[in-house]
Design a protein around this nucleic acid. Sequence first.
RNA 1: GCGGGUGUGGCGGAAUGGUAGACGCGACGGACUCAAAAUCCGUUUCUGGUGACAGAGUGUCGGUUCGAGUCCGACCACCCGCACCA
Length: 870
Amino acid sequence: MTTERYNPRTAEPKWQKAWADAKLFETQTEAAGEKYYVLEMFPYPSGRIHMGHVRNYALGDVVARYKRAKGCNVLHPMGWDAFGMPAENAAMQNKVHPAKWTYENIDTMRKQLKSMGLSLDWSREFATCDVEYYHRQQMLFLDMLDKGLAYRKKSKVNWDPVDMTVLANEQVIDGKGWRSGAEVEQRELVQWFFKITDFADDLASALDSLPEWPEKVRLMQRNWIGKSEGLMLRWALAKGTAPDGEREVTVFTTRPDTLYGASFIAVAPDHPLAQKAAEIDPALEAFIAETRRTGTSAEAIETAEKKGYRTAIEAVHPLDETWRVPVYVANFVLMEYGTGAVFGCPAHDQRDLDFARKYDLPVRPVVLPPHEDPVAFSVADKAYVEDGVIYNSQFLDGKSPDEAFEAVAEKLEASDLFGAPQASRKVNYRLRDWGISRQRYWGCPIPVLHCESCGVVPEARENLPVKLPDDIDFEKPGNPLDRHPTWRKATCPVCGGDASRETDTMDTFVDSSWYFARFTAPRADEPTDPQAANAWLPVDQYIGGIEHAILHLLYSRFFIRAMRECGHLDLDEPFKGLFTQGMVVHETYRDGREWVAPVDVRIVEADGRRVATRISTDTPLDIGGIEKMSKSKKNVVDPDDIIASYGADTARWFVLSDSPPDRDVIWSEAGVEGAHRFVQRLWRLVTETAPKLPNAAGAPGTDGAALEIRKAAHRTVAGVSDDIERLAFNKAIARVHELVNQLSAAFGKIDPANAGETAAARDALSMLTRIVAPMMPHLAESLWEVLGETGLAAAAPWPQVDDSLLSDDTVTLPIQINGKKRGDLTVPAAAGKAEIEKAVLALDVVSAALAGQAPKRLVVVPGRIVNVVV
RNA sequence: GCGGGUGUGGCGGAAUGGUAGACGCGACGGACUCAAAAUCCGUUUCUGGUGACAGAGUGUCGGUUCGAGUCCGACCACCCGCACCA
């Protein structure tokens, strides 16, 4: 009998239409079943979907379809993170309006996503650049302003003096503007901030209430928030050394126990003391100007060479007024953190030690490592940061660092400097408030007005939305909103006088900080429908890239707290379960300097070596490293091409198999073909077996081949369910392979006249179809049809597992001698330790190894292993 | 620089502290075919041996344990994030 090959090109559109016609994935809040909200991070509409998207949405779709089969009321929406810089770059380069560019991209990408056969509720779709969406975001902003969660302050930006524009950190390359090549400067602007620090403590401690988040993400967030308990410590400045009017400097320190090891104070270049000192010291002024040429990113600042400028100022040691330490201005001290001033203890901090060596400052150890001789111990080029005993420290000698911390704190809290305590305890956070101002066009306008008589006033709620103007000009440098001839002109809602609009737009992270809440009631007039939001949230399973581990997730966690304060929902955390997927990576190829795309490359294996040649010219190519797919290195594979030639199911199956989803997956052509072969193999197995099962309606048999088939099927379903719950799709797929191998072998021997066997086979195929359905939904529908099942596979319930088929009567234990496997022993599953011991000692290998002696030790782990120690 | 992660056959990977290499890819051998593709069967960690088998083996070095890929310490390499990329 010949079987036609499965043709995804006809089957996939057919089933996609069947699902859409049945409105299978349009979710009703009131529908029956336990609610389950699955969400993948929504895409930026860059133009076309890439393999990373395919992987992300395939992962989420498996969960969505599985939970639906398990009887849950599943919400699985999709939208677009549509504001941002690339649209403006496209506008500048191609003279296309950002809105047109964005919406055209969305149309393309929606079509591509639909070809994947995702079980999405498209009726809830929106883009963050839709006026309907950013209108509600402006409402949220006003509410937050009202609650004191939004405010203005000065902050630094990267300024390109040629393009007259603010640059993003990624647009600063080696300290120069990416377009103009001009030396970037730091500039201070008054900008809008959200008060995320109000929630710093809760954002850190509530991480403990998120057991379904990866431990690493919780750790990263905890470190990012960076709670530290320390001392605000005031140092008097030595008379005659300080600028006029300055008499003290406050440092924040977590190590007051090392105070007797202090050898310098360092302040940030924009610390008031540094600014004041620079007024009378041109060399210092030049040094500070020099530090402003570093970009504003922490990375740029911290990887820059550590430099300091020794001012004339000296500080008086808080515990010894005869002791003076020099005050430096240093490029690695950040004004945003603590007080913008630190004291350096070189012996017990590596950065301080490097600084001290560079500027020849004293290095005095005050913490003695255990078992070290106090006279001989010294610090050379490695600071000692571990625990020990305090010495060289007067009244602190002999204490532990913790005790010394307490002693210093108590003493200095009680002592007086200029009429106030010299020190106070302080809990400090590394987390800074969230600067949301962007000097760009393609973002959500901040709904605020500047009135000459009333100052900064919020736009009236009824005047919202503040819409972006359509007629804009990207020809000239700078912010198009700022330059617009009329857009800025407005009326003050307080006094009715002339006012001008705020031209800053919001960081696009704001857009993505609450979209998951909007999905629960996407057309509501208010930002949320609190009832719907409270019913659906938190998101049960959120899936996205690890690159969002800190900012996006932290901002979203902040936002639901802010929204709760404003009454938009009542929720502790936005995402109950979080899964961070790995990237899709691909080999790179280059012809000299030029990168070559995989579609233009032919790989031939010769003598065990892989050789790449360019197809068009037959020239040999260098095979480079395996890297994240990126346009610049051309190592991208277009999902459209894959879906067109192999079908969506093959693409989905491939990205789900092999690699565990939290790790990177290497895209390879061979792997895709393997996946496609499996699609055809499943099709063959079912279409060739089904006609042999004419009388399969009865009960499956309970012995012989029938029992074996049933055991295999039920065990696989149990295992696959378990794997999907844990998002271990690669393991689920391995199990499906195993089952198919087993069934193929078993079906060859089936007696078509044996009703027990044919029924078992039929059941097994039905179960197999349902467990592959979340991963290969189109193929599953076609198989479902061949099997003569009714309805759609996508609407079929998950197969029930008969637990009695999961265990065996006997178990085979590996027998180790001194930890090395030397034999096997099969015993009844219920056998006790004593029984096993007796049987083990009777084994030939064991008695030979013992040579008449008693074993030194006999470790029996029932059901697992036996180890005989001789 | 700081924070986080990863490292296992030719390759992707599997393995509640308990038989290292499931499953897949590739390769090799065989069947089918006039032939090829497709498909099916078998072999495939390395070294030695015809073989039974023996030894080695999870980035490197050390430790804990009857037993370590898994736990602990140090190191190496690579990847992600660092607040205006999304």
